[in-house]
Design a protein around this nucleic acid. Sequence first.
DNA 1: GTGCTGAGGTCATACGTATGACTCCCGCCA
DNA 2: TGGCGGGAGTCATACGTATGACCTCAGCAC
Lengths: 340, 340
Amino acid sequence: MPSPQPPAGRPTSKDVAKHAGVSQSTVSLVLAEKWRGRVSPATVEAVRDAVAALGYRPNTSARSLRLGRTHTVMLVVPVLTSPFFGAVHTGAAQVAAERDFGVVVYPTRDGVDLTPNPFSSAAIDGVLASSMAAEPLDVLRSAGPGTEDLPLVMLDSEPGRGVPTVNDDVADGMRTLAEYVVGLGHRRVARLRSAVQTWTFRARDAAFRAALGPAEVVAEATAPLTLDGGREAALTLLASPARPTVLVCDDDLQAAGAYKAARALGRRVPEDVSVTGFGDLRYARVVEPELTTVRLPAVELGARGMTALLDLLDTGDAGPDVVLTGELLVRGSTAPPASG
Amino acid sequence: MPSPQPPAGRPTSKDVAKHAGVSQSTVSLVLAEKWRGRVSPATVEAVRDAVAALGYRPNTSARSLRLGRTHTVMLVVPVLTSPFFGAVHTGAAQVAAERDFGVVVYPTRDGVDLTPNPFSSAAIDGVLASSMAAEPLDVLRSAGPGTEDLPLVMLDSEPGRGVPTVNDDVADGMRTLAEYVVGLGHRRVARLRSAVQTWTFRARDAAFRAALGPAEVVAEATAPLTLDGGREAALTLLASPARPTVLVCDDDLQAAGAYKAARALGRRVPEDVSVTGFGDLRYARVVEPELTTVRLPAVELGARGMTALLDLLDTGDAGPDVVLTGELLVRGSTAPPASG
DNA sequence: GTGCTGAGGTCATACGTATGACTCCCGCCA
DNA sequence: TGGCGGGAGTCATACGTATGACCTCAGCAC
């Protein structure tokens, strides 16, 4: 005797309804918590029991189709192996989970588009993007065709361009750092900047120069934010005839590379040359001496960015632009310049 | 004169059909590349033109609902700030994108469940999970109720337990490392192990001990895989009365902590004590001297894991278990033991 | 002329949910 | 007794897609 259609797959709201002896609509009302004057407490109880008994979970695709929202957002970052963006993701994912949103990560590796396929599976309601690798329009375009008009919040991007932003106050951080370095007595500064010049790096440099006071930049170079990039550029800078007494880097990993350059040149840190980083990535405390740097609240950056994006989705308003203050961390890599 | 219902939202396949002068079914057939003898080339052309003209993109929710598959998988890892798991994600995301799948990351922070809400938005077809933080069953359970029977592939997990696995050959790596260290002449070994004892760490330790030969472990401790954890444990190990000549760590970051302990005790690396790490995370080359370690192919691990999972989804078979070989990287942190 | 075949499409329906419109019934007031 | 309000649910439909079942011809053999 062939049993007629064993339900097999996951239970649906219809199954729950049958089990509870009510209609599918009622189940839906109960689950949406919209039964204020429409369903009796006893019935609510019955539905809840049925849900538990069957282990029912709503079908997200159906819900999305009905509501026109996927409850998923995309996080666009340069490659995720950087501890900074890992932390950004952590904060963002935390907030998203609390508000019942999923996060799909979209790593833009040097501008390579991961989903050239127009039938990409990414069904998303909005985009949270770091500008480290791109301008706002590029970000949206890179998320695939048809996404140009998605709600967007940018991280570490120039404010006032029509897109809500959540930023680290890199200008304040750099100013504080500059004042500290100058206060130590340094006057001849070498500057190692990021090779990719997104807004956050331009802002760092402008703030640094504005706060130099009696000191001046006597040598300057750009390099990728890598160990080897930092090492090679620092080799040149430290050998500069202008004899800088401090090397101010845009990034901790660059600074770690600078340590290697200093060692290769027989210069001690900080006795012969001071070195500073930026970001307080985990490298900062791994190196010896530990690195003087500016802590950027990466986790909070992700969290506040996600909050703004979800607010934007819910209310149409992301709220005012956010600026998160960093913190100068003085450690062992800085000292007054050697006399003479 | 009120215009009757401006289409407003994104175009649907129905709009494309109207534009091309065909039925919605035909559009669907063309887009699914299933028109071998059912649609004329001219019509196909017309549909394609309409798609391009309207900028049509299929609605993923509707497609998922119809097909019963979301084209999204979940990647479960301990917190993503680790460079290792960042790399795993990179490999996994790459493969997923190529096969038109989305990836949502689920970080299990110390067992904290990010989506306790049974209405979680995660609509996924399968799970790719690292075992670093949990056993297979726990992984599925932690992905939320109702997910217990999802297709699953585990990374760095014990094979032969009914779940397909993709592993680094940590045993081979540790054996090679042990032979190298013993070959240098070391006989008294200190061993710094991971505090959380998942399979991969048990495997490392077993392989190490089996390959010790004439050497022996004279001091041993466990610590979390952090800088401070490594430093504190190493302080004790290096001060051991048994005077170990080499410290073999389960992790690069631990090893970086051990450097700090050695320095605090006035011991030079490698002249007074050799140190080895495991993983070849980016810390390995940041420290000075650079760390002798075993490279684990994290990107490839993610990529092969994702390949296995998608094969499992497509064909019902994940293929045979995969084992990826590592590589011993001899750098500056190891030397023969000081004579005497 | 009839029947058949196959190419080229269309029709109708189902996936599972959410919700506006509707029904039914009970109690109560005039 | 008629009517009415509101509490408790149900009905029907739409979201956008994919697909099995149908439909319509033109061409051709008999």
